[in-house]
Design a protein around this nucleic acid. Structure first.
Length: 511
RNA sequence: GGCGGGGUAGCUCAGUUGGUUAGAGCGCGGGACUCAUAAGCCCGAGGUCAGUGGUUCGAUCCCACUUCCCGCUACCA
């Protein structure tokens, strides 16, 4: 059985500072990376920055900066964000690195040698900011300025020699590939879009530019730089030391298990990328998941509307784990999600402080007062005890299935249910009325501690640092977290001295 | 214009391979308790499951049409 798992975020385009969308992609990817790790997988989790292209070149020129120095600066803000988000990434790749250009050139050479790339001429309306050509019908004239109708960005007439990738040859093979791999594109609705686009006919794709030079040079023709998307997508290979196919990383982790991306870059990942790879005789990734956008009050966040929720500000004010929890819980994964500060606060108070945090607190405090803060010796388990403890083994296979299907919402719904029932259990058993029945009281404490241990393991991928604080009371550190142990009902050994636990999540005072 | 997804409680969303009283969380009203971050637990109010028609013994779920929202895509200009 292959126990390796390779997951990637998009590499971010550093023309602007990080926003909530970047944070969301990264947090979700980190969730799956951590979840797979505690399930025993050897996980390779990659993120990074995409730094070539005309947009970057112009932005650097405006600041009178060397483009690489310009990228250094902004790439660093993304690297910092990874740390702020507590990402467990194994690598951070930049497309300006040598290992990357080597990899891209190699892929290019293979494609050229196989006749998949040819030199021709392109003319058309080009938008620098969109990095896309538009047909006459896709642009409009506003006061003498030509604009793209769809994106509203300025286009200019470009006529230049360009290399083309024979995408048109791959139409049928792509359809065949999608049919053979029905879960290659998720969610389903995105897959439908891609397939209908491919079926409507693919044109050869321009894969080089002569009009600027901030990029990787075409090996056989220094007048051209390689199209940013062919460049960028290859990062997923470069990080594994491609083209060294004998390298351990490459052998272990390619093809990628999951490219997690936003729906806006689906076409590149679900059409161009597998086409490039198939053409180069490289196995395509196993899955591309296009998640939705994070919206603020039903609208895309924008400066003019003043509804921007800046991830750094939110984290500063509320903490990282609450943001992670909120985004994972409240956004219906795959769909766009509306977020707001009010909802975040309500989520922190109800779910994290009152439900989970208080559960830990009440059980620990009770154990402290009545069992010297040690795992107590227990009596026989009652039916009630067993039923609640066994929920985890009962739904174990489902939980694994949710992990493999990126069914984030079912996964967290299970957790929330368990939190409610753990609180209910403690309530119904009324251990504070069992002063005359120490054994029963101890058993209730024991069961409650086990429940906290189990649910906290499930919570770890969502709120890693808070979960670790809780697992620490049992002496479980990050390396020891094992998903399978949620099936055990007697993991905690009697007499184990428990560590104290501070308040996990402070409630937000209502204004 | 074509294709796809969707319109379910005040809000955010589940769900139903068609079957007796349609679910959760939050919010709201009431109750009993006290180990706990005045947390937790119990009970309740609240929905013509977008509209109309059809198939069926029976439709929120299937079909047709209408309407609104979203995504992908085309054409005309």
């Amino acid at each position: 059985m292959n126990k390796n798992y390779y997951i990637t975020t998009p590499i971010y385009y550093p023309s602007a500072k990080p926003h909530m969308g970047h944070a969301y992609s990264s947090i979700i990817a980190d969730f799956f990376a951590r979840l797979k790790r505690i399930q025993g997988f050897n996980v390779y989790f990659l993120t990074g920055t995409d730094e070539h292209g005309q947009k970057i070149q112009r932005a650097a020129e405006e600041k009178k900066m060397d483009p690489l120095l310009f990228c250094d600066e902004i790439s660093k803000t993304f690297r910092d964000l990874s740390r702020t988000l507590n990402l467990s990434n194994n690598d951070f790749i930049r497309t300006t690195e040598k290992r990357h250009s080597k990899s891209v050139k190699n892929l290019w050479n293979i494609l050229e040698k196989k006749g998949e790339i040819y030199l021709s001429k392109y003319s058309g309306w080009y938008s620098v900011s969109d990095e896309a050509f538009y047909t006459e019908s896709e642009i409009e004239d506003l006061d003498g300025v030509k604009m793209s109708i769809s994106s509203g960005s300025k286009v200019e007439w470009v006529e230049e020699e360009s290399y083309f990738f024979r995408l048109s040859n791959w139409q049928d093979k792509l359809i065949e590939f999608y049919n053979k791999n029905p879960d290659f594109i998720l969610p389903e609705t995105r897959k439908n879009e891609v397939i209908s686009f491919v079926k409507s006919g693919l044109k050869d794709l321009s894969v080089s530019r002569k009009s600027f030079n901030w990029g990787i040079k075409v090996p056989s023709n220094k007048d051209h730089v390689i199209y940013v998307w062919l460049d960028a997508l290859t990062n997923y290979l470069s990080a594994l030391n491609y083209p060294n196919e004998n390298d351990n990383l490459y052998k272990s982790f390619w093809p990628a298990d999951l490219h997690l991306i936003g729906k806006d870059i689906l076409r590149f990942h679900a059409i161009y990328w597998p086409a490039f790879l198939l053409a180069a005789d490289i196995e395509p990734p196993k899955r591309v998941f296009g998640h939705g956008w994070i919206l603020s009050g039903d609208e895309k966040m924008s400066k003019s509307k003043g509804n921007i929720l800046d991830p750094l500000e939110i984290i500063e004010n509320y903490g990282l784990d609450p943001l992670r929890y909120y985004l994972i819980k409240e956004v219906s994964f795959g769909n766009d999600g509306n977020i707001s500060q009010e909802k975040l606060e309500s989520c922190i108070n109800s779910d994290l402080a009152n439900n989970y945090g208080n559960l830990c607190q009440r059980v620990l405090a009770f154990c402290d007062k009545n069992a010297n803060l040690k795992v107590p010796d227990i009596n026989n388990l009652t039916e009630d005890d067993k039923i609640i403890l066994d929920q985890y083994s009962k739904y174990y296979d489902d939980l694994v299935k949710y992990s493999d299907n990126q069914d984030l919402n079912s996964y967290i719904n299970f957790i929330v249910e368990q939190l409610f029932s753990a609180n209910k259990y403690f309530n119904d058993q009324e251990p504070w009325k069992k002063k005359n029945d120490k054994l029963r009281m101890n058993t209730i404490i024991y069961v409650a501690l086990e429940l906290i241990r189990k649910v906290t393991i499930l919570l770890y991928p969502i709120i890693p640092s808070s979960s670790l604080k809780v697992l620490n009371i049992f002496g479980i550190n990050e390396e020891k977290i094992n998903f399978e142990t949620i099936k055990e009902n007697n993991y905690l050994k009697k007499g184990l001295k428990l560590n104290k636990l501070d308040i996990l999540f402070k409630k937000i005072e209502k204004k």
